[in-house]
Simulated scan of single mutants.
Amino acid sequence: MISTQPVTTIRANNIEIAYELYGNENAPVIMLIHGLGMPMTAWPMTMVNQLVEAGYRVLRIDNRDQGQSEKLHHLSMPNMIWQVIKLKLGLQINPPYPLTELMNDAIGVLDALNIEKAHLVGVSMGGMISQLIAINAPERVKSLTSIMSSTSNPKLPKPSKEVSSHLMSGPASKSKEDILNYHMKTWKLIGSPMFPTSDSDLKTYVQSLLDRGISAAGTQRQMLAIIGTHNRYDELAKLSIPVQVIHGTADPLIPISAGKETAEAANAKLHVVEGMGHDLPLQIQPRICDWILEQVSSVECEKETAAAM
Rank of each mutant, 00 (worst) to 15 (best):
Ala217Leu: 13
Asp290Tyr: 12
Asn49Leu: 06
Gln50Gly: 05
Ile292Lys: 10
Thr4Tyr: 14
Ile15Tyr: 00
Asp178Pro: 09
Ser192Gln: 05
Lys303His: 13
Asn24Tyr: 06
Asp105Ser: 02
Ile133Phe: 09
Glu101Cys: 11
Glu274Trp: 11
Ser297Arg: 15
Thr186Ile: 15
Thr9Trp: 00
Arg60His: 04
Val109Ala: 00
Met47His: 06
Thr262Leu: 15
Ile227His: 03
Arg212Phe: 02
Asn153His: 07
Trp82Asp: 10
Thr229Pro: 04
Ile15Pro: 01
Asp251Tyr: 03
Leu132Met: 15
His230Pro: 05
Pro193Thr: 04
Leu32Phe: 13
Gln220Gly: 03
Asn136Lys: 13
Leu120Thr: 07
Ile135Val: 07
Leu280Pro: 02
Ile30Ala: 04
Met148Lys: 02
Ile227Val: 08
Arg221Asp: 03
Thr145Pro: 13
Gln295Phe: 06
Val141Ala: 15
Met80Gly: 04
Gln295Lys: 13
Ser165Met: 13
Pro39Glu: 08
Pro252Asn: 14
Met103Thr: 01
Ile147Val: 12
Gly108Thr: 00
Asp62Trp: 00
Gln207His: 12
Ile30Thr: 05
Leu202Ile: 10
Gln285Lys: 13
Asn267Gln: 13
Ile61Lys: 00
Ile179Gly: 02
Gln66Asp: 06
Ile190Arg: 07
Val243Met: 07
Thr229Met: 09
Asp234Trp: 09
Lys88Asp: 10
Tyr19Gln: 03
Asp111Glu: 11
Gly122Lys: 01
Asp201Thr: 12
Asn94His: 15
Ile10Pro: 02
Val84Cys: 08
Gln50Asp: 14
Pro159Thr: 07
Ile107Tyr: 01
Leu209Val: 05
Ser169Lys: 15
Ser160Ala: 07
Ile226Trp: 04
Glu302Ala: 15
Lys161Val: 11
Leu293Trp: 11
Gly126Thr: 01
Ser208Asp: 06
Gln92Ile: 11
Glu25Lys: 12
Gly126Trp: 00
Asp279Leu: 10
Leu113His: 06
Ala118Asn: 02
Thr204Lys: 15
Met276Tyr: 10
Leu202Val: 06
His278Arg: 12
Pro171Thr: 01
Val109Arg: 05
Leu236Ala: 01
Lys86Asp: 07
Val141Asn: 05
Lys303Val: 14
Arg232Leu: 14
Ser200Gly: 08
Lys176Ile: 08
Met309Val: 12
Ala137Trp: 02
Thr151Trp: 04
Ile227Phe: 03
Gln66Gly: 10
Met148Glu: 02
Asn231Asp: 15
Met168Phe: 06
Lys86Tyr: 13
Val272Ile: 15
Lys86Phe: 14
Ser297Val: 11
Val29Leu: 15
Met148Cys: 00
Asp279Lys: 12
Ile129Ala: 01
Tyr182Trp: 04
Gln283His: 14
Gln83Trp: 05
Met128Trp: 08
Gly228Arg: 02
Met148Leu: 14
Asp211Ser: 09
Asn24Lys: 08
Leu209Phe: 03
Met148Pro: 00
Ser208Asn: 12
Ile241His: 05
Glu177Trp: 08
Ile288Trp: 05
Val163Cys: 09
Gly37Phe: 08
Asn267Ala: 03
Lys142Thr: 02
Asn114Asp: 13
Pro286Glu: 08
Val296Tyr: 03
Ala307Cys: 09
Glu294Thr: 10
Gln220Thr: 06
Glu274His: 14
Met128Gln: 10
Thr46Gln: 11
Asn153Lys: 12
Gln5Pro: 07
His247Asn: 12
His278Thr: 14
Met38Asp: 11
Met309Arg: 14
Leu270Cys: 11
Ser69Cys: 14
Ser76Met: 14
Ile133Pro: 01
